[in-house]
Write a protein that binds this DNA or RNA. Structure first.
Length: 118
DNA sequence: CTACTGACTGATC
DNA sequence: TGATCAGCCAGTA
């Protein structure tokens, strides 16, 4: 299973209403400094694949921010998807990571790691 | 193998 | 409040 597929698997495991920033995804994949590669992977996400890519966001200090680099989907669309799941944005389009960052159980991570070896 | 490209991040100015 | 810079990494040519 290559890096991209791992990113997809992990992203699929993010529960509604929760998010992960690129750096966190990379860290959970045991590659703490591959945040940029994570962005590349999500950019390659097949449209229509069962991957909630909108739950992966950028990070500014202790806040989450929707990335504007890729225009396959607009910032507004991604924001609407997250708001539909309960994420509240402030006037600057940011939201506190402390409140929305997903913190998976060790057991859940183990299950995901299991899929990686397949 | 080398070179280049990004949905990144944190530090610096 | 921005804008820039430099490390970092996987995928592609």
């Amino acid at each position: 299973m290559n890096f991209n597929e791992r990113v997809f698997v992990l992203t699929r495991a993010i529960p509604p209403g929760k998010v992960l920033n690129y750096g966190e995804v990379a860290r959970l994949l045991n590659k703490p400094q591959a945040s940029r590669a994570v962005g590349y992977a999500l950019n390659a996400t097949p449209d229509g694949a069962d991957v909630p890519w909108h739950r992966v966001v950028g990070k500014i200090g202790n806040y989450g921010r929707i990335s504007t680099r890729a225009l396959t989907y607009s910032v507004d669309q991604q924001r609407m998807l997250l708001e539909a799941e309960g994420v509240i944005f402030d006037e600057q389009g940011l939201f506190p990571l402390s409140q929305y960052l997903w913190e998976p159980d060790p057991a859940e991570l183990a299950a995901i790691a299991d899929l990686f070896s397949q």
